[in-house]
Design a protein around this nucleic acid. Structure first.
Length: 441
RNA sequence: GCCGCGUUCGUCUAGUGGUUAGGACACAGCCCUCUCAAGGCUGGUGCACGGGUUCGACUCCCGUACGCGGUGCCA
């Protein structure tokens, strides 16, 4: 039946996938999945046919990372290809001929223009509602160019032709296209085609209210991949920008979102991207990772940071990383958090030094060291019992010896559970590090 | 300039005529605790403004302001 839902994401291959584009793709994908329709990827490379594959790679990578798999398009095939505009010239020529034969085209300075019928056009948008555009004034709505003198095509034209040819039922795109839509509708009509349903989704803004642009940190999906965000978290967060499950849930399974998603519930107003909330949500997902999933990502993050974990025994690495699970939100925090496990030389946090490497603490740390030296079975349980008894003998709270010990061994004020971290490090290293710390105060 | 869209805590949002305007992130404090997280509790901040309509407006209508977008061969 012709009522099949077919949507498309039609990026320009610029060498990176914008986070707003990713969300547009996501909403298209959600809509397609919700309606058991098809999600098409089409590369709009009218201008730069040369390095298309290379420049499109970032788009593929981003979409795949977010698990927004396309049913038709590059590498997926389909009955409506080719899916690169640079390879669809004949189709555009045919459409142009049709317009020309019907008298819609005129030449101007070598370029071809489409003569507007000069009418009122009502855009019935699923998100924005019915909008009345008056295109009757040529001054304010000039006839659009569809082909440059050099023969290259203008976006508005090829975009419409492709959507017709590919039988796109719903055009879901950024709100920046809303004002262009009536012109597109004129083209559909001139081409004897029924316009698709339109849904213009709000743009994503920066904190300062400006449109997120290429230069802004975090504007590219690659940024999240590189920093070790979890795709399911980024995807979940993106869903929450302009759409809501309408209950108090923030963390929602993608299958549940597919089930609930409706375009008519998408907001009309732009949303500000909030890195803090994404950071939190990523932590929510990170905390529920299985041990092996956590381990895998942690290893990748440490390697990416140049930490030589491969020189350490597997069991050591595994035990070390287990003490970090649940403690970090994003994996790029891990090198700083767990680096002390994999370094011979550690540097001490200056604030911590001022606070903990005090004359008063020196004999306390010495007491800890002496007690540790006597432990045969250097396990977290033994270590904890030992530290508690040392504290008791010293007449101080256990915290008073915990802090200097942590600093001496890890260089930091914060980190994994001290008792467990000491066990992982092992008695030898622990004693050596404490001894070395004495040299600094 | 013209056209279009938008406006609930700092941010994301719930809310469609009568609510103590709810939740989340962030922030502050407290509890828990070997630190940090996590978790629990508490707190502050919000319906852009002005007119209507109505017994009654965050909610409907009209203006204003502000923001964003489009527009003359970028996608």
């Amino acid at each position: 039946m012709s009522s099949e839902v077919r949507v498309r994401f039609a990026p320009s291959p610029t060498g990176y996938l914008h986070i707003g584009g990713a969300r547009t793709a996501l909403f298209n994908w959600l809509f397609a999945r919700h309606h058991n329709g098809k999600f098409v990827l089409r590369v709009e490379d009218t201008d730069k046919a040369r390095n298309t594959e290379e420049a499109a790679a970032a788009i593929y990578d981003g979409l795949r990372w977010l698990e927004l798999n396309w049913d038709e398009g590059p590498h997926a095939g389909g009955d409506f290809g080719p899916y690169f505009q640079s390879q669809r010239n004949e189709i555009y020529e045919r459409a142009l001929k049709k317009l020309r034969d019907a008298g819609h085209i005129f030449e101007d300075a070598g370029a071809l223009r489409f003569r507007s019928p000069r009418e009122r056009v009502i855009v019935d948008d699923i998100v924005c509602g019915k909008i009345d555009f008056d295109l009757s004034n040529e001054e304010t709505h000039p006839d659009m160019t569809i082909r440059r003198p050099d023969g290259s095509w203008i976006f508005h034209f090829v975009n419409v032709v492709d959507d017709i040819e590919m039988k796109i039922s719903h055009v879901i795109r950024g709100e920046d296209h809303l004002s262009n839509t009536p012109k597109h509708i004129e083209l559909y009509r001139a081409l004897d085609a029924t316009p698709p349903q339109f849904a213009h989704i709000p743009l994503i803004m920066n904190r300062d209210g400006s449109k997120m642009s290429k230069r802004d940190q975090g504007a590219s999906v690659a940024y999240y991949i590189e920093r070790g965000f979890l795709p399911q978290a980024v995807r979940n967060y993106l869903c929450l920008l302009g759409w809501s499950p309408k209950d108090d849930r923030e963390k929602i399974d993608i299958d549940e979102i597919v089930r609930l998603f409706e375009l008519s519930k998408v907001h009309r107003n732009p949303a500000t991207f909030d890195p803090d909330k994404l950071h939190w949500l990523n932590g929510e997902y990170a905390r529920e990772l299985s041990d092996s999933e956590f381990h895998e990502r942690a290893v990748a993050a440490l390697r990416a940071a140049g930490i030589k974990i491969d020189t350490y025994p597997n069991e050591y690495v595994r035990a070390a990383l287990e003490t970090c699970k649940g403690k970090i939100n994003v994996f790029d925090e891990l090198p700083a958090y767990a680096g002390f496990y994999f370094a011979d030389e550690i540097s001490y946090n200056p604030e911590g030094v001022a606070k903990n490497f005090t004359p008063e603490n020196k004999p306390r740390l010495q007491a800890v060291r002496d007690a540790f030296a006597k432990i045969d079975n250097f396990t977290a349980a033994e270590i904890e019992a030992t530290m508690k008894s040392v504290a008791k003998n010293l007449g101080v709270k256990v915290g008073a010896i915990v802090h200097p010990t942590r600093l001496a061994v890890t260089g930091s004020n914060a980190g994994p559970s001290l008792y467990h971290l000491l066990e992982v490090l092992g008695k030898e290293k622990v004693l050596a590090r404490i001894d070395r710390a004495f040299a600094t105060f």
